[in-house]
Nucleic acid binder design. Structure first.
Lengths: 233, 233
DNA sequence: CGTGATTTAAAAGTCATACTTTTGTGGCCT
DNA sequence: AGGCCACAAAAGTATGACTTTTAAATCACG
């Protein structure tokens, strides 16, 4: 299933990106475009375009007379959605989930505070709806349905913050929540305390109580971090 | 000075990226590779490689039989360093500085808290040194020297947090601080209160007092936000 | 012997062209 | 009106020739 029929470029990009982020090539390794073209059985044209993209993600660096050098992980643009996906699909998924969760714990409380100041009535209503949806699906092993509401909830908060940088983290949060549900030993039902907190965040936002919305979201974040420590100590 | 002799690819990428992020092409505009090749007087090969990179930044989308469509700003990967640079160089620099500052205000306090737990002795020493440097240069219109210490200080905190996502924001913070110093109406001397706060953060980190480091950094962040409101209300 | 200039060749960068594939559009038929 | 089909436009891919940069080997000289 690794070979979706989406064009040669996509295929080669996916293969190489996955391999590099998985650490298949130690930093400093040198690739040659000719060799890659041969290996993937595509033209040099395709390889070059792929390399240019990987270069823009700081996964590799291309230099004349030298070749394409794999960069150390500290260089990688870890905010690139593609890179995030590759890393989540690879071996250090746990490490990646952890650092993303820490990022969430920093960003989401502030976003919630801003959302309380700026959310439109429609967004408030949406938020309440999702929170209620979480309540409704929080029992009886309905994790999938719960996840949908959870993701939607956090996305709305980030959007409503009115900050574009926050809003763009919606996908990241979705990945983290999905990963948590699917790939970790998950409790059969979500933590009831967390569910309640979501409802109260929705209320605080509707009440324009920024401080409370921030405080409550920080509690949710602490819970998420603790969960990580419990499940992968 | 817009045409650095760094290769055709770089030149075209820079031109197009800058133009798109500046809003020169309204979202939905369609470009054709042939036309671009002609306009920049380069081969279609070069244009295609550029398009692929812009596509990976979600600035454009390329579809057969249609052409290259400019994406709306909400799609852009605003965490890409290149995109950040382009936007900072363009017309909505103020808006960009604002959203980056909000991001900082969310991330840096948490990073400082983590740094207090994890900073190595060397990092603690470095931090103190930079804080003292800030004190030393905070008077007498030595803004440039002050800036260097300021940037270094925040970089160390982000690095010492031990979170890769935080660490990668070092460049962003550097951009914001530099932009604040160079492109805004700057007070002749930095705010003495801010300088003191930096010193105390360094002390808190050295003392392993995470809560205090976080609290103090939050104060710095509040100051930065207020400064924005004062200078560009 | 070491050191600096010079040559060499390896690899990426660029270009032109020919061909393939996808897909929006317009016309035709019912 | 609705659906089918043929057409053409634009991106995607392949190939081969050529240019430019530059690491490294070679050579000349003190």
């Amino acid at each position: 299933m690794t070979t979706r029929a989406r064009g040669l470029h996509t295929h080669v990009l996916e293969s190489l990106g996955l391999a590099i982020t998985a650490g298949a090539y130690p930093p400093g390794s040198v690739l040659r475009t000719d060799e890659l073209a041969q290996r993937f059985d595509v033209s040099r044209t395709v390889v070059r375009e792929v390399i240019r993209v990987l270069e823009s993600m700081y996964l590799v660096e291309s230099r004349r007379r030298v070749g394409v050098t794999v960069q150390p992980a500290e260089q990688w643009n870890v905010y690139d959605p593609q890179v995030i996906r590759w890393r989540l699909a690879g071996a250090d998924r746990p490490r990646q989930l952890r650092s993303l969760t820490v990022l969430r714990s920093a960003v989401e409380p502030v976003a919630a505070g801003l959302a309380a100041l700026r959310a439109t009535p429609a967004q408030c209503a949406d938020l309440t709806e999702q929170a209620l949806g979480m309540v409704a699906t929080s029992r009886g092993r309905r994790l999938e349905a719960y996840l949908v509401h959870d993701v939607a909830f956090h996305r709305i908060v980030l959007d409503a913050s009115g900050n574009e940088m926050f809003a763009r983290l919606g996908d990241v949060v979705a990945e983290v929540l999905t990963g948590r549900t699917h790939h970790q030993v998950m409790f059969p039902d979500p933590d009831p305390a967390a569910v309640t907190l979501h409802v109260r965040v929705a209320e605080a936002v509707r009440a324009r109580d920024a401080a409370e919305a921030e405080r409550l979201t920080r509690e949710i974040a602490v819970g998420a971090l603790q969960e990580l420590d419990v499940l992968a100590p």
